[in-house]
Amino acid sequence: MDTTTKTPKACIGDMFPSVFPGMPMFAYVPNPYDCGRPAKVYPGDNTYYCVKGAPLCAVDAEDAALLAIRRTVCRTMNQCYGTATPAQAAAVEAGIKYGWSDRRANPALYDADGAFCG
């Protein structure tokens, strides 16, 4: 058996070296591939994990009002479960969209409301 191809697989919640300091263990963000339903995202991982029991809205994903509601649901989930601040959640969302080494994935560059400042 060839053992050279056996590499340790990353576990959910592992912190990867390319992740900026100050990242949470995970955050809830809108999943663009599932009608914007809240998804759990782990820093350094490029997968949106479905959340059971999250509200499903079968409406066009381009609806601005619905997107605002989805973001509010994700922000409330982050606050209720104490998983991530708005700045950390915004950095996690940017990291999964643009890559974890992109400067937008740095939570230090966001204000307290999660707006990019830098």
Rank of each mutant, 00 (worst) to 15 (best):
Y48M: 11
G114D: 04
G114W: 03
V92G: 04
P30F: 11
A87W: 03
A68C: 09
P86A: 02
Q88S: 02
A65H: 09
V29L: 00
K40L: 08
A27M: 04
K40C: 08
F26V: 00
N78G: 10
C80T: 08
L109Y: 12
A64K: 13
C74H: 14
D63Q: 06
V41L: 08
R71E: 15
V51Y: 03
P38R: 13
G82I: 09
A64N: 05
G82W: 12
G114Q: 03
V41D: 07
V92R: 02
N106G: 02
G99M: 06
T7E: 14
F20E: 01
G53A: 11
A91W: 04
I69S: 10
E62K: 13
T76H: 12
N78P: 12
K9R: 15
D34W: 01
F16P: 00
T83W: 04
L67V: 05
P30C: 08
Y98Q: 13
D34Q: 06
A115G: 03
T76R: 14
M25T: 13
Y42M: 01
M23C: 12
Y48V: 11
A54R: 07
C57F: 15
S101T: 15
T85C: 04
T5H: 06
M77W: 14
R37H: 00
E93S: 14
M23H: 15
A91Y: 03
G118W: 09
N78F: 10
R70K: 09
D63E: 10
K40H: 00
G36E: 05
A90T: 02
P24I: 06
E93D: 13
L109E: 02
T85L: 03
A54W: 10
